[in-house]
């Protein structure tokens, strides 16, 4: 099982060239080969959404994606949300903090990456559209209400920052 394949990926803007086994999942690649531990693994069968990352700006389950499938792709993970210079939280992150949109925080990176995709495509989503977007992410702690609040708050803040 050890035949390896060369891949080249750009993760959060950094280019990586690695030899990987064909069976290595993208989640394991990001977490254990690149030490990007913010992408969490909750079910490894594509239901919980904790491992959601963006591949070429589209949300994807990194547990159901093989690293070799990400060859020549741009990948964005939760580690890319903070401002690398100032360390300031992204408005989505800050909104989750301010609206108490997390408890244990394990599912949160997946929710935030899904939210990032949603708000890029639809800066002013209705509640129904938020629910539709987040319907594939499981949270066992919050009961989702504060997550709804967080996403609404993030939308509001990102809109006003774009306008301002």
């Amino acid at each position: 099982m050890s035949s390896k394949q060369r891949i080249e990926v750009r993760v959060n803007g950094t280019r990586y060239v690695r030899e990987v086994e064909a069976r290595l999942t993208l989640a394991d690649f990001l977490r254990h080969e690149l030490s990007l531990g913010g992408t969490h693994v909750g079910c490894e069968h594509g239901i919980c959404g904790a491992c959601t990352v963006l591949i070429n700006d589209q949300s994807a389950r990194s547990c159901l994606t093989l690293a070799v499938q990400a060859d020549d792709c741009d990948i964005t993970t939760v580690e890319n949300l903070r401002n690398p210079e100032t360390g300031a939280l992204h408005p989505i992150q800050q909104s989750f903090v301010d609206a108490h949109g997390l408890q244990c925080g394990f599912c949160t990176p997946g929710f935030m990456m899904t939210t990032l995709e949603l708000l890029r495509e639809n800066p002013d989503p209705s509640d129904e559209q938020i629910k539709e977007a987040l319907g594939g992410n499981l949270c066992r702690c919050t009961g989702y209400q504060s997550i709804m609040d967080s996403v609404r708050l993030a939308a509001q803040r990102m809109k006003s920052s774009t306008l301002g």
Partner: peptide
């Protein structure tokens, strides 16, 4: 309802959940 001291690290993905430790 003060903000939680736990949260900045949790939303940053830097918290050391056990599978992040080697």
């Amino acid at each position: 309802p003060v903000n939680r001291v736990e949260d900045p690290a949790l939303v940053s993905g830097t918290v050391q959940f056990i599978d992040n430790l080697s």
